Simulated assay, not measured.
Amino acid sequence: MKNNQVLIGEIKVLENGVMTVETEYSEDDFTIDWSDVKSMKTETDFIIMLSHKYRFNGTISPDPNNEDYLIIYPDQGSKMFAKSLDIVYLKSLEAGFWDRVSANIDAGFSLTKASNTKQVTVSGAVSYLYTRLNIDSYINTLYNVVQDTIATSRNNYGANIKVFFNRSWYILGASDFLKSDEQNLALRTTIQSGAGRNIVRNHKMYLVSAVGFALNTERYDHEEQVSEQSIETFGEVELNIYGIKNVRLSSKFQYFASITEENRNRVNLTLDSKFDLPKDFYIGGNITYNFDSKDDTEGAKSDYVVKSTVGWSF
Rank of each mutant, 00 (worst) to 15 (best):
G235K: 04
S227T: 11
S250N: 10
Y242M: 05
S227V: 04
Q254N: 15
T233H: 05
A257R: 13
S258A: 07
R248L: 14
E218L: 10
Y255G: 04
E236F: 06
E238Y: 08
T233R: 03
R248K: 15
S251F: 06
R219V: 15
T233Y: 03
I241C: 01
Q254S: 13
G243A: 10
I231E: 03
K252A: 11
Y255I: 14
S250E: 08
K245V: 13
K252Q: 12
S251H: 01
H222G: 01
D221K: 15
S250K: 09
I241N: 04
I241W: 03
Y242D: 02
S250C: 03
Q229I: 05
I244D: 07
L239Y: 13
Q229W: 02
S258Q: 00
E224H: 08
G235L: 10
V226P: 03
I231A: 08
E236M: 09
F253D: 00
S250W: 06
E238H: 03
S251C: 06
F234P: 05
S251E: 06
S251K: 01
L239P: 05
R248G: 09
S227Y: 07
I231P: 00
I231V: 05
I259C: 02
G243R: 00
E223H: 07
Y220W: 07
S258P: 02
N246G: 07
S230F: 00
Q229T: 05
S227M: 06
T217N: 13
E218V: 03
I231H: 03
D221Y: 15
F253M: 12
S258T: 07
L249N: 00
I241G: 04
T233I: 12
K252T: 03
R219I: 13
E223C: 10
Q225P: 00
T217S: 14
